[in-house]
């Protein structure tokens, strides 16, 4: 955290071999995006698919605009996770968009669903919120934005299936504390997250992670105008 003069700092220049060192042939580096995103796969897994028991979410096949928004928000501190901010701090919007594109285009199989650990009552609660929401609390149905099949609405809204349960629990917590979209003009998911109870978010995470990922392609759906309005600049901002 201590970063006095950080932005005017000049430091840590990694410098070169002198003549006294034997020079082996240089490592052969492919000029590809796959090579350039190696720092990502250290946690997110090669091919952008982390193990199902991992905290780190998969990246493969997520909507491009969504991935770009996350990368930029991590870099700029709106989505707070310092290791990501440190990793991305000096990368341009254009480069982040290429990274997003790379992972969005990866077609990788999803892991089998986690074993369900819900009571019938919890499952019913989760399905009610997913299908109908709760208009009394101004909570829309999940399917309204995340799609009938819960596989997202390109290019900005992510799918909800195929994610580790622990990751979703953590995300709900972050939405509630406002740590995911700080400073965004419309903070729709934080508003929703603050309305949901812990019982509801736990039920949602358990139910969603226990569902198999359907196999067909969902990239045709579009977001309803009313929901787009509510989501504000999340679904408008992009480097494109």
């Amino acid at each position: 955290m201590k970063t006095f003069f950080l932005m005017m700092a000049i430091c840590s220049i990694v410098l070169a071999p002198g003549a006294e060192f034997a020079v082996a042939a240089a490592v052969d580096v492919p000029d590809t995006m796959a090579e350039r995103v190696k720092p990502c796969v250290a946690c997110h897994g090669s091919e952008g698919v982390a193990g199902k028991d991992s905290f780190y979410p998969r990246l493969a096949g997520k909507p491009k605009g969504y991935l770009f928004n996350q990368l930029r928000d991590f870099r700029d501190g709106r989505r707070y996770y310092r290791p990501m901010a440190l990793l991305l701090e000096n990368l341009s919007d254009e480069y982040l968009m290429e990274m997003a594109s790379h992972f969005a285009d990866l077609k990788q199989p999803y892991p089998p669903p986690e074993p369900a650990s819900l009571t019938p009552g919890e499952a019913a609660l989760a399905r009610r919120l997913i299908e109908n929401g709760d208009s009394a609390r101004n909570i829309p149905a999940c399917v309204e934005c995340h799609g009938k099949a819960l596989m997202g609405t390109p290019p900005f809204i992510p799918g909800l299936l195929g994610l580790p349960r622990m990751y979703m629990v953590a995300q709900f917590g972050a939405w509630r504390s406002g740590g995911l979209l700080r400073g965004r003009k419309a903070d729709c998911m934080s508003e929703i997250g603050k309305q949901l109870t812990v019982e509801e978010t736990n039920a949602l995470a358990a139910w969603l992670s226990s569902r198999p990922v359907p196999e067909r392609d969902f990239s045709v759906a579009t977001l309803a105008a009313e929901m787009a309005q509510r989501c504000g600049d999340i679904v408008r901002s992009s480097a494109e």
Partner: peptide, 21 residues
């Protein structure tokens, strides 16, 4: 912490180092 050298016009798409923390 790993990290990338900066994106610059002379090196717009730098290669990076994974974080190992």
């Amino acid at each position: 912490i790993g990290g990338y050298p900066p994106s610059t016009s002379g090196n717009p798409k730098p290669y990076g180092m994974p974080p190992f923390a």
